[in-house]
């Protein structure tokens, strides 16, 4: 069953490509009123015990042969139930996977390259690491076993320079700053600060990409709104003049 769960939790690159090619769907969701009703209904049924069928028989009064048959029957029943549950768990995970993929697509983080670019934006000095060590982290999928593995990929000298220049431009004198911080404040404080910085950068990135996602999916509506705002600004400028 563990294999089934693992397999279903993994998504093929083909699925990612397919979702890109099919374009952006416009799903509808529960309305706020429906969400409230959903919660009310859940609260109403909470605590109610499920109905159970039972057979009135004392196991101790059964003959050894009957007991053996009942035990075998139960084992068979439990195996069949496990099979059904494994299939259902697989389908539920696929459903959740598609929901997660949709969120990733909304944030424009639905391909390996986009995720790696985002990592560069989020994690301080990751580009410096790529530049210094000449390798970058890639997540690969084995076409036969479908298992994902993390590998280090060699990058070209040009890429290393690009990473380095990008890092220096983005973070200033990154290496010197990092070393000075380590000397001054110790590893624990530096790591804590880095964690805070990653959290801040992540939220900035998600806000930016969330805005882009909204613009992409509700572009017409937003551009109309922005146009109105632009018109207002223009008219204010005109009034001032």
């Amino acid at each position: 069953m563990g294999d089934v769960l693992r397999q279903s939790a993994e998504f093929s690159d083909q699925e990612i490509v397919d979702s890109q090619e099919t374009g952006i769907e416009q799903p509808s969701f529960l309305t706020p009123a429906e969400q409230v009703r959903f919660e009310q209904l859940l609260a109403e049924v909470e605590g109610q015990p499920p109905a159970e069928d039972i057979i009135e028989a004392d196991f101790a009064e059964l003959s050894p042969e009957q007991r053996r048959q009942i035990v075998a029957l139960e084992a068979e029943y439990n195996d069949q139930r496990d099979e059904v549950k494994a299939v259902v768990a697989n389908r539920k995970l696929q459903l959740l996977g598609r929901a997660v993929l949709r969120v990733a697509k909304f944030f424009d983080l639905n391909t390996k390259d986009k995720l790696m670019t985002a990592a560069l934006e989020i994690i301080p000095y990751v580009g410096l690491g790529y530049a210094v060590f000449g390798k970058r982290v890639v997540i690969d999928r084995d076409p036969q076993t479908q298992r994902r593995s993390i590998n280090f990929e060699d990058i070209s000298v040009i890429d290393r320079v690009i990473y380095l220049v990008g890092e220096v431009l983005a973070s200033g004198h990154a290496l010197r700053g990092a070393l000075n911080s380590l000397k001054r404040e110790g590893m624990k404080k530096v790591m804590l600060k880095a964690g805070q910085e990653i959290a801040q950068n992540t939220s900035k990135l998600l806000v930016t990409r969330g805005r882009q996602g909204l613009k992409r999916e509700f572009g017409g509506f937003l551009s109309g709104k922005n146009q109105n705002i632009g018109d207002q600004e223009k008219s204010q400028e005109f009034d001032q003049n």
Binding site: F29, K92, A99
Partner: peptide, 28 residues
């Protein structure tokens, strides 16, 4: 999770749950 799912996905979840319950009830 359900309030975050699209209506189509909620319907799919309902299908999954229904099919599970039908199969489990049959086995029982």
């Amino acid at each position: 999770i359900i309030p975050l799912l699209s209506l189509e996905q909620i319907e799919e979840l309902m299908d999954i749950l229904l099919s599970e319950q039908v199969q489990l009830a049959g086995l029982r």
